[in-house]
Each structure stands twice: as structure tokens, then as C-alpha cells.
Nucleic acid binder design. Sequence first.
DNA 1: TGAAAATGCGAGCAATGGCTCACCTTCTCA
DNA 2: TGAGAAGGTGAGCCATTGCTCGCATTTTCA
Lengths: 198, 198
Amino acid sequence: MAHAPRKQGRQSRAKATEAAIVEAAARILESAGAAGLTTNHIAERAGVSIGSLYQYFPNKQAVIAALLRREWAAMLAALQAVADRAETPQARLLGFVEVAMAHQFARPALAVQLEHIETGLDLVADATALAHEVEAAIAEAVQAYRPEAGPMAARDVVTICRALINEAALREDIGPDALRPRLLRALFGYLDAQAPVV
Amino acid sequence: MAHAPRKQGRQSRAKATEAAIVEAAARILESAGAAGLTTNHIAERAGVSIGSLYQYFPNKQAVIAALLRREWAAMLAALQAVADRAETPQARLLGFVEVAMAHQFARPALAVQLEHIETGLDLVADATALAHEVEAAIAEAVQAYRPEAGPMAARDVVTICRALINEAALREDIGPDALRPRLLRALFGYLDAQAPVV
DNA sequence: TGAAAATGCGAGCAATGGCTCACCTTCTCA
DNA sequence: TGAGAAGGTGAGCCATTGCTCGCATTTTCA
């Protein structure tokens, strides 16, 4: 029988429990990877019984979706804060790069695991929407910097930056300061190249 | 009890069975992803019993390792063929780009799945060695093109190209010809940028 | 040609993981 | 203050998965 997952908790306990479950999932992903992410394990780490877990989430996927939502929302908020403050297109791009680096270096293992999970999962519409908003914000910034850039340029820029940041965040010997020049080189190397923008 | 996996098969049947198992694993990865890659499923798809599978491979990981070995070896051979023919450093780099695109577009889903698996697995030394050889060949080509490039440059170039090719190979509407200009823009944008090579 | 070696088989075991259900505890508010 | 609602519990079901073991079939070669 399918669960009717408990409605939005009215008591503050409920919110705390739900958040604890999501955070437990995050911590397990960091320490044990996707393979160790079992519902029993999540509940245990959250200091909660499995029964409780299934009162807040209809299934395991929903827990992951909630975590993705949390992360994307944080990222989006940070991007928007920067976008509001930036005065030139270039400043905005630079700000975005800082946001992306900060996000990834804050919890590198988590970010990487989530990215892996994301590509192998049919996401809940809700979480996908946030991801799309993030991409749209970046695409807009790229467009502002290089008005003649095609739609592929933004995707490429995201792909390139994401890959470089991921790679760096996983090596403990490389911090944001060591990464920044290489990242900017790749980013503006692509955007400012002589060849016509694709 | 641990298996003593059967020695190198002497009969040609043996070779065929082993190859069938590895190829079955590849096909399952393509169609169902890592989640569908079970030993029972592999055996069934290979037209072989699980018993046979475990006579050639001590465990599931070994099957994956064999597949990785197969793919890395093919890639390395292709790279070396190009390197032997190329007359200038730039030609070598361009050739490498073609090899990488060809490899990825040949079996896009497989390449992506293997990459995911690779980052979450302690590889058998044997397979890692091949991967390192591939990286070394690329690093050498980068060094030849840009002698003043630091050790990070090669890594960055690999990271960038891999990410762009991956991304493109997964979208059905983008072929090698649509990708090539963007890829070259990113590659030489990075390598030829004004800023000092990192 | 026949026996030993090589190869192949598949039921089924032990472990694991997602999830349910019947029940208990804490909170709220008339 | 007490009854119902909200929140919490955990043994255990069922399906799946990695893998073993005893045995059958095929190949090789003296």
C-alpha cells in the first residue's frame, strides 16, 4: 500500500525531523557515497526510526530530491544576490565564478555525489525547475557579457566551469586560490577567443 | 570459499565466453545504467550461466575492471596511432581531439557510465595503469604544443575536453561536427590565452 | 575411443535493502 | 484535564543480489 506521507508538519518537531533526515542523507553521501545511502542508514544517522522517515518522504528518491532541492535553492539564492550587486556583465560573471567555487569547496564530496546522482535519476519536477533557473541565470550573464553568443555558449561555459571546479574540489591540495586563475583562463579563453562565438 | 578463477582459457570457447561476458556488461550499462548491472543479469545477457561468469571473474568488480581495461586499451592504441602519424604538435593535439570524439560518440552512454563508475571505485591496478598512460600521452602532447605549460595545464585540458565531449555525446541532436568548433575554441582558448600559462 | 581436463550449468544460500504496519508517546486545546 | 491529533517506533516482510557448489556436457589427446 502506498503511503500518504504526512502533511506539512504543524509542530516544530516535524520540521526539525525532516531537516535532520535530509542532512543525514547529505552526510552519508559525503562519507560513504551513493552505495552507502540506504534508508535504514539515513534514519539511523538522523537519530530517527525508519518509520518516521517514511512519514515525511514517500520513498528513498524523495529524500534525495529534497536534498537536491535544498542545494539548488541555496545556489540560486547566492547567484541572485551576486547578480543584484554586480554592476558590469564581467563583474557578474566573476561573481558567479566565486559563488560556484564557494559552493563546491564548502562540501566537495557532497557536490560531486549529487551531480552523479542527478545524471542517473529522473528528477522530481520541482528540483529540475530550480536547476533550470540556475542555468537560466548563468545563460543570461553570459549573454550580457557576449551578446553575440549563441545558446550553446552558455551551456559550454557551465560545462567547463563545473568540470574544472569538480576536479579541483576533490583534490585536497588545491584550494580556490589555486583554481581561480586556471578557471578564469578557461572561461575567458573560451568567451574571448578570436574564432566566432558559436 | 573464495574462487580460484579459472586460469587463462586454453580452448577458444573460453575466450569467446569471457569476451561475451564483458560485452554483456557493456550493453547493460548502456541500456540500464549502473543500477541494472547485476551479475545475474550480465550472465543472462551474455547467454551464459552465472556459474560460468564466476569461473572467469572472481567477482563483479573484476568484470567491470575488464571492461575498463578493454576501453582504455582501445583508446590508448588509437592515440598512439595518431601520435605516430602527426608531424606537428598542433596536428597531434587535433588528432587527439578527433580520437576522443570518435571514442565517445561510438558508444556515448557506455562512456559516460564507465566514467561515473570509475570515480566511485577502487580500480584494479592494471586498469589504472592504462588510464595513466593515456593521461601521460596527452600531457606530452600539451607540453609539446606549449613548452612553458605547467603540469596543471594538461589536467585542465583533459578535464575541459572530457566534459564537453561527454555533454555533447549524450544529446542526440549534437554530432561531432557540431561539437568540434566549440571544443577547439575551448581547448585553444585555454592554451593560447594571453594570461601566463598556469 | 575413453578417460581426464576443460568448460558450462543453475538451484539456492546468506545478506541486504526498501518499505509496511500495528502500536506507543507527546502535544494541543476546548 | 482528557481525548484526539500529531509525531515516533522498530520488528520484520518481500524482493533482490552477489556468489557457491555439486554436477552435467564438451573437448582433447594418448
